[in-house]
Design a protein around this nucleic acid. Sequence first.
DNA 1: CACACTATTGCGACTCAGTCGCATCACACA
DNA 2: TGTGTGATGCGACTGAGTCGCAATAGTGTG
Lengths: 144, 144
Amino acid sequence: MSLADSALAQLSERGERITAARRAVIGVLAAEHEHRTAEQIAGAVADLGIHRATVYRTLEMLDGLGVVTTRPVGQGSTGYHLATGEDRHAHLHGVCRSCGVVVALPADLLASAARSARSANGFALEPAQSSLVGTCADCARGAS
Amino acid sequence: MSLADSALAQLSERGERITAARRAVIGVLAAEHEHRTAEQIAGAVADLGIHRATVYRTLEMLDGLGVVTTRPVGQGSTGYHLATGEDRHAHLHGVCRSCGVVVALPADLLASAARSARSANGFALEPAQSSLVGTCADCARGAS
DNA sequence: CACACTATTGCGACTCAGTCGCATCACACA
DNA sequence: TGTGTGATGCGACTGAGTCGCAATAGTGTG
């Protein structure tokens, strides 16, 4: 669990306390490769007697510290994931407007987009947070 | 008000009824150049005795007909705007994660992104709906 | 190892956006 | 003008997220 451990280590380095609730939230995040919504995480740790409000507060703190990445997911909810050093997120995501599927867009698209946005607007793109909306191949072909 | 009128015309062409509530919602949409959230629109037409539920239903119907474009705005709310034929939306938007400002990204970025997504994933990008998240020049330079 | 300080937690009530079912109303067409 | 049906208003409901506060439990110190 070096993944969870390193996240925990970051916390104590920043002077944050290591509590059972935080350990549990980070554990859930570390165990999943997908983005999890706050509510999903809350559901997963509810058995341990951890309250929803605590999960939201923990996630907010983790996000502020840069320990997790966030991403808009579905309709107005936010997905969280541990920020690993690895570059699994070095691409943009396309979200199908019709079926909701998420596709990984080419890495060079991200590279050119980031370059273009930076030079034209001084805008620093955050790929992990960005999703493009459109229609996936299946939905474009078939029915709604 | 040819803008609102043409939207209304589309409705009756599709067999939808022209009602006072729909007229009012479209009027608000036509009067604004920015995306408005459902709640803002609801607030604007509340004086006319139009209920929030009606606004949501109208917006959903308008969206289904393609008469309005939607865009994720801020934290989990949806912005609506009349779909004009004009190409004012032929660019991607960048939303600053820190201050929320929306910047227009270069048109060629959109062109290459759309091309790349389509060829690699068969993904049909909808620029009017897509926003990239990042940090604007001001926030990157200055404080939070 | 025990203590004290204070950040964190659990709780429950609250807010806010959005949705649902139903009775009433008013378009659109004849 | 009359009629039928789709749209509206209403208000209660849901679900996500937040707030304040008292109790609890990490952490560093002696």
